[in-house]
């Protein structure tokens, strides 16, 4: 599990440092603090970023919105972002609202408000709301990562590093190359949001990463995966495997 990489765009140095400190204490990684539009763009493309915190006003102008508008024009490069603002001025908000999906946080804010806003921004960006606040779920599935809530913070797991997923009631065991952990997510959500080109369900309980299949043991009705994980597949999902074999 990795920390989330966050870029802070804030011209108030004191506030920026405050935010950075808060984030670091809550196990987030601050990849950089940008104080203007140009700097922000450079850093945005320089680092691998999971979320951007943007102050709407950089100096006198709402350059933060301009930045959001700029990154919104390139859909694949777009990452979740969170606006910071000290006033709910209607005109500014009408403009900011156009950079959908957007979240904002009203200044002044405390630690909890910031963390909650970050979670909401992630949820909203990946269209899976009411996840992190609920008791029954703790994971948002993105294209490349799983975002998992651990206590007060969010963690990410690269999907390509997942070898297989074992479903057990409301829980899922995630087995990656280096670790094993439990997340809370219903199977229906996995089926809806998980990249189905990469992952296939082969059993009522198992979903495997097709990239890491080493061997298909037809006689044993099982798959040998990376790190010598042997997973049994059931007849119900046999066709899936067969189709997959022919393709290979």
């Amino acid at each position: 599990m990795d920390n989330l990489n966050i870029l802070i765009i804030e011209d108030d140095e004191e506030l920026a440092n405050d935010i950075a400190d808060t984030l670091i204490t809550n196990n987030y990684t601050v990849v950089g603090i940008a104080s203007n539009y140009k700097d922000a763009l450079t850093k945005y493309y320089q680092f691998s970023i999971d979320l951007v915190i943007i102050d709407i006003f950089l100096g006198e102008n709402p350059e933060g919105i301009t930045f959001a508008e700029t990154i919104s024009t390139i859909p694949n490069a777009l990452k979740p972002f969170l606006f910071l603002t000290s006033s709910k001025n209607r005109q500014i908000f009408e403009r900011a609202k156009l950079t959908n999906p957007f979240r904002f946080l009203l200044k002044p804010f405390n630690e909890l408000e910031l963390l909650y806003a970050i979670e909401m921004a992630i949820e909203k960006f990946y269209h899976q709301t009411n996840v992190f606040a609920s008791k029954s779920e703790d994971t948002v599935i993105a294209d490349e990562y799983l975002f998992i809530k651990k206590k007060n913070t969010l963690k990410k797991v690269k999907l390509s590093s997942v070898i297989y997923i074992e479903v057990e009631n409301r829980y899922c065991n995630i087995i990656t190359e280096i670790e094993k952990f439990v997340i809370q997510i219903p199977l229906s959500k996995i089926n809806e949001y998980l990249n189905d080109r990469l992952f296939k369900q082969i059993h009522r309980k198992y979903i495997v990463n097709t990239e890491v299949i080493q061997e298909i043991k037809i006689s044993e009705n099982s798959l040998l995966l990376k790190n010598n994980h042997l997973i049994h597949y059931s007849d119900k999902y046999k066709d899936l495997i067969k189709g997959f074999c022919i393709l290979k």
């Binding site: 709910k88 001025n89 209607r90 908000f93 009408e94 609202k97 405390n110 630690e111 909890l112 408000e113 909650y116 709301t129 009411n130 606040a133 609920s134």
Partner: peptide, 27 residues
């Protein structure tokens, strides 16, 4: 004043009441 002058930005969405109370309690 914001309400009176209709300057308040308003956006209704799904919110977890527990988290909000927690956040306010913090202060």
């Amino acid at each position: 004043a914001n309400i009176q002058t209709k300057q308040l930005y308003f956006h209704i969405e799904s919110i977890d009441l527990y988290s909000v109370v927690q956040q306010i309690e913090y202060n």
